[in-house]
């Protein structure tokens, strides 16, 4: 197409402005516009005159949500991201914290549950009466062959250090099966060479702080 004569350029700019050009011619014309300021000026003339067709229109108020939508599109970093980020951040942090907690708890339970010492307490006739497993802060007691007990009596467990007095570790659970919690000082008592002993005591245990009845079972703690 010949774009050289002023008349032709003016006519083509007019065709473009009003929309008479087919798509391919439109694209070609837009290419020409890029490098030709005079052609842009010619088009601007047409646009200005044609815009006067909009002159009689009366201004129409725009609902506020239109402005909000525009703002959210030109400021995506301020409007979109913060709206979504807290949720995902919290979710992610939550998941991390939860997995850490689970890992730590499992780890703790696992190490805590490690049996550190074991003892099998024997009766005077060398019959195994009780098995005791020492965990970090409790003892697991398991009856093997336990003598029947009068209602008014209790069995009390003692730790007897190598050279020292027996220290009460607590009462053997009724029936012999169960756990005995250990205090810090009791935990420190336990170690190799310590002998565990079970004495027959009045209901509720010895009142003197020392074994007051006969020792029914005893055996040394053995490290694993």
């Amino acid at each position: 197409m010949n774009y050289q004569t002023a008349e032709r350029r003016r006519a083509l700019a007019g065709d473009y402005a009003i929309g008479l050009m087919p798509p391919t011619a439109r694209k070609r014309f837009e290419q020409l516009l890029l490098d030709d300021p005079h052609l842009r000026a010619e088009l601007a003339q047409w646009d200005t005159h044609l815009a006067s067709l909009a002159e009689p229109l009366s201004a129409q108020p725009v609902p506020e949500h239109v402005w909000q939508a525009i703002v959210s599109r030109i400021e995506p970093q301020k409007l979109h991201v913060p709206a979504r980020r807290p949720f995902w951040t919290w979710l992610r942090t939550g998941v991390v914290i939860c997995s850490l907690l689970i890992a730590v708890t499992v780890g703790l339970l696992y190490t805590r549950d490690n049996v550190q010492y074991k003892a099998t307490l024997l009766s005077g006739t060398e019959q195994p009466g009780l098995r005791i497993e020492a965990h970090t802060d409790y003892l697991q007691v398991q009856p093997l062959q336990l003598a029947a007990l009068d209602a008014g009596r209790s069995l009390e467990l003692w730790a007897i250090p190598v050279d020292g007095k027996p220290v009460s570790l607590g009462l053997i659970p009724t029936g012999g099966d169960g756990m005995i919690g250990l205090s810090k000082s009791q935990q420190q008592l336990l170690g190799p060479h310590v002998v565990l002993a079970v004495s027959l005591e009045p209901k509720g245990g010895s009142t003197t702080g020392q074994p007051s009845g006969p020792v029914l079972y005893q055996g040394p703690l053995a490290a694993l």
Partner: peptide
């Protein structure tokens, strides 16, 4: 200028919802 452009968009589209999208 939004009210002016809205009037043009409305004149073209003939429907408020479509015109508002065009304004946006």
């Amino acid at each position: 200028v939004a009210p002016s452009l809205h009037s043009v968009a409305l004149r073209c589209m003939g429907r408020r919802d479509l015109a508002e999208e065009v304004v946006q």
